[in-house]
C-alpha cells in the first residue's frame, strides 16, 4: 500500500505540473517562481500529511491521526486556495463581453 501511495503521489505530481503549466508562467519572473514554489510546498505538505495520517492510522495512534488530519488538511486547504487564487482558478472576475450601448 505504501508503494502504491508513493507511485500515485509521483503520477499526480507530474499531472499537476502539466495542469498548471499554462497558468503558472507569468510575465514577471518572481510571480512564476512564486507559483511553482507554492505548488511544490503545497504538494509536499499534502503528501506529508497523507503519509503521516496513513501510518498513524495503521498503527492505531488515534489522537495523532485526528490531530494530523486537522493540522495537515487545514494547511493544505489554505495553501491550495492561495495557489488557486494566484493561478486564476478562483476569485478572478470575468471580463464582460457586452459592448457599450450609446
Amino acid at each position: 500500500m505504501g508503494t502504491i501511495l508513493v507511485f500515485v503521489a509521483g503520477v499526480l505530481f507530474l499531472a499537476g505540473i502539466l495542469f498548471i503549466k499554462p497558468r503558472a508562467k507569468c510575465e514577471l519572473m518572481w510571480k512564476t517562481v512564486l507559483n511553482w514554489s507554492l505548488y511544490v510546498v503545497w504538494y509536499a505538505i499534502t503528501w506529508i500529511g497523507i503519509s503521516f495520517v496513513y501510518i498513524n492510522f495503521n498503527v492505531g495512534h488515534v489522537k495523532a491521526t485526528s490531530t494530523a488530519i486537522f493540522l495537515f488538511l487545514g494547511i493544505s486547504v489554505v495553501l491550495a486556495i492561495a495557489l488557486a487564487r494566484l493561478l486564476g482558478f478562483i476569485g478572478v472576475k470575468k471580463i464582460s463581453n457586452t459592448t457599450v450601448q450609446v
Binding site: V59, G60, H61, K63, A64, T67, A68
Partner: peptide, 8 residues
Amino acid sequence: FGYGTEQI
C-alpha cells in the same frame, strides 16, 4: 499527538 499515554 497523544503519543505514549494512549492504549491501543
